[in-house]
Structures are given as structure tokens and as C-alpha cells.
């Protein structure tokens, strides 16, 4: 049986995510219980706010190693959303330098807005994503999703960035994937029908 767990570490609007999953006919649990997390079949790491603060919270609740164990040793499906995606990487340069979970090699850097005065930070709005790798994501090609972020996730291995969107002349990494671990910069729970479809896709993945 499917056991979908949303990691609760006091970081963001978890209710919308839970309700989004309800909308696609599934149930989920919001929890920070280590056993529940390890026993889940699908784990979602949400997150808004600052990277350093979020890592501190994961450590405070003893979840850092639990999430790594779930993803790297047990190799079960993990979805990081927005800041949750950025946390998957090795390090971030948001207000200083912070170590991330390091599940996917790469770094989190600020959106470079020096090239075009129209580029605003945070980037807030809907963008169509372009799927470049992983045929199984093809169904989301050119679909619009809602983004709100000031930083971007740059994977060391370019093959692990499977989708991007254009923000003026910038390419914003939109989906990253390494084996059983997926990260999306956009908020599926805030991206109307396409977003719900994306959640459905993840929750039905093996």
C-alpha cells in the first residue's frame, strides 16, 4: 500500500500539498516521525524560506540522516519541492555558505539579474517548462507551472537537470533527477491542473 509522507519541519504551507494529494484521490500524512518517514513509499520534502534556516530545522528534528538513508540506502522515491529541491544539493550560497543534504551533487546560487533590467528577484510567476531529458516526463513539456524563488539549483552533472524554463535570457533549472530522487523548482501544489498531474506522476512512480 502507498504511504505518502510530507516531511514536517516547520517550513512552509504543507496544507496545500496535502490537499493537492487528496485532490488526486490519495492520502498523505504530514509527519516528522523518523519511522514513518523511513517506512513511507513516497516522501515529499517541501520548503520555503531560507536555505540555512531549513537545514538547521532538519538537523534540529534529526531528519538530515533519515532523509539521506531513505533516498540513498533505501532508494525509495523522494520529491523535493522548491527549497526542498535545493536542499537535495551539496551546498548553497544563500546568505553565506551552507552544506545541503548532498544527495545530488551541485550548488544553489542566486539568480543573476545583472544581465537584464527586466529580471526581478524573486522570480515570481508561471513559466512553461522544457523537458530535455527523461522521456517519461515528456507529458509535462511546454506546460506552465508556478515558480517563486530567488535561487537556482545547478547540478554538477548536466544530465541530472532534465527540464528548464526561460526567464528572459536565463535558463532556470526546473526539474532535476538522479535515480529515485526528483526535485522541482516550481510548486506543483500551486500549479493548477498541471501541478496536480505532476504530483500524481510522482506518487505513482516506483
Amino acid at each position: 500500500m502507498k504511504k505518502i509522507v510530507i516531511v514536517d519541519y516547520d517550513c512552509g504551507n504543507l496544507l496545500s500539498l496535502k490537499r493537492g494529494i487528496e485532490k488526486i484521490g490519495l492520502t498523505s500524512e504530514i509527519s516528522r516521525d523518523q519511522n514513518k518517514i523511513l517506512n513511507s513509499t513516497h516522501l515529499i520534502l517541501p520548503g520555503v524560506g531560507a536555505f540555512g534556516n531549513a537545514m538547521d530545522l532538519l538537523k534540529k528534528f534529526d531528519l538530515e540522516n533519515i532523509i539521506k538513508k531513505y533516498a540513498l540506502e533505501m532508494k525509495k522515491p523522494l520529491l523535493g519541492i522548491c527549497l526542498g529541491m535545493q536542499l537535495l544539493l551539496s551546498k548553497s550560497f544563500e546568505f553565506g555558505e551552507h552544506e545541503g543534504l548532498g544527495i545530488i551533487n551541485g550548488k544553489v546560487i542566486k539568480i543573476n539579474h545583472s544581465t537584464n533590467s527586466k529580471i526581478k528577484v524573486p522570480n515570481i510567476g508561471w513559466s512553461e517548462i522544457k523537458i530535455e531529458k527523461e522521456k517519461s516526463f515528456e507529458t509535462f513539456n511546454n506546460k506552465s507551472f508556478y515558480f517563486v524563488h530567488s535561487f537556482i539549483s545547478v547540478t554538477e552533472n548536466k544530465n541530472e537537470t532534465i527540464a528548464h524554463c526561460n526567464y528572459y535570457d536565463l535558463k532556470i533549472p526546473s526539474i532535476i533527477k538522479k535515480n529515485n530522487v526528483i526535485g522541482c523548482q516550481f510548486h506543483p501544489e500551486k500549479s493548477s491542473k498541471n501541478g496536480l498531474r505532476f504530483l500524481e506522476y510522482f506518487c505513482n512512480s516506483n
Binding site: G12, N13, L15, H187, K190, S191
Partner: peptide, 25 residues
Amino acid sequence: FIPITVGGGIRSIDDALKAFKFGAD
């Protein structure tokens, strides 16, 4: 399932927390 902003009478961290808890983004 799109972003929801809530305003009017938000005066503290607690007010904001309450709004987020009820589904505001």
C-alpha cells in the same frame, strides 16, 4: 491550487503563522 495571498489585519508573526496554517502562501 494556485497561490493565495491573505491580507488585512496581519500584525505579528503569529497572525502570519495562522494564515499560513490555514492555507495562505
